[in-house]
Amino acid sequence: MRIRTAALTAAILCLPLTACGGSKDDDSISTKPKAESSSQAAPTGEAAEPADAAETVPPSEKPKAARIGDTITLSGQDDGEKLDVTMEKWLDPAKSADEFTTPAAGKRWVAVQIQLTNTGTTTYSDSPSNCVQAADTDGQRFDSTFGDITAGPQMTSDLKLPAGDKALGWVVIEVPKASKVATLQFTMNSGFADQTGQWKIG
Rank of each mutant, 00 (worst) to 15 (best):
G80N: 09
E61V: 15
P176D: 12
L83K: 11
T102V: 10
E36P: 07
D126W: 04
P33M: 06
G164P: 04
V181G: 08
V171I: 14
S125K: 13
A7R: 14
A97L: 10
S96W: 00
I173M: 09
L184R: 00
K82H: 03
Q40C: 12
A134R: 04
M155H: 03
T121S: 15
A151N: 02
I114N: 01
P162V: 09
D70F: 07
T71S: 12
S30T: 15
G139N: 04
A182I: 00
Q77R: 15
R67P: 01
E61F: 07
I114K: 05
G164Y: 12
G152C: 06
V172N: 01
M155D: 03
L13R: 15
S144C: 15
A134S: 07
P33D: 04
A134M: 08
S127R: 13
T122C: 10
V171Y: 08
S190P: 00
Q77H: 09
S30E: 09
V57S: 10
A94S: 06
Y124E: 05
G197R: 02
G80Q: 03
P58Y: 02
G22F: 02
A54D: 15
I68D: 01
P176R: 07
M1R: 14
E174S: 11
I3T: 15
K64C: 07
D27L: 12
I201C: 08
A47N: 05
G76Y: 04
L8P: 01
N189H: 10
T44A: 14
G164V: 07
G22H: 03
L184N: 02
D158T: 08
Q77F: 06
A94V: 01
V85P: 01
D26S: 09
L74F: 06
D70C: 10
D136R: 03
D165A: 14
S96H: 04
L15C: 14
P176W: 05
P128C: 10
I12P: 02
P103T: 01
S157A: 14
I29L: 04
P128L: 06
G139P: 07
F142H: 06
A42Q: 11
P93Q: 05
P58N: 12
C20N: 11
A182K: 09
C14M: 12
Q115S: 06
P59L: 11
V110Y: 01
V85N: 00
T187Q: 01
P33H: 05
S179D: 09
E36W: 08
K160A: 12
T119Y: 07
A167P: 11
G120D: 03
Q115F: 00
S75C: 08
D78M: 12
G197M: 02
D92G: 03
W170I: 00
I149Y: 00
S30V: 12
L116M: 08
S37P: 00
E46S: 09
V57N: 13
S30R: 11
L91M: 13
L15F: 14
I68M: 07
T137E: 13
I149N: 03
S28I: 14
A35F: 14
P103E: 05
A182P: 00
A104M: 05
D78Q: 15
A94W: 00
P63N: 04
W109H: 05
I149G: 02
E99D: 15
E46H: 11
D165K: 13
K166Q: 08
T145F: 02
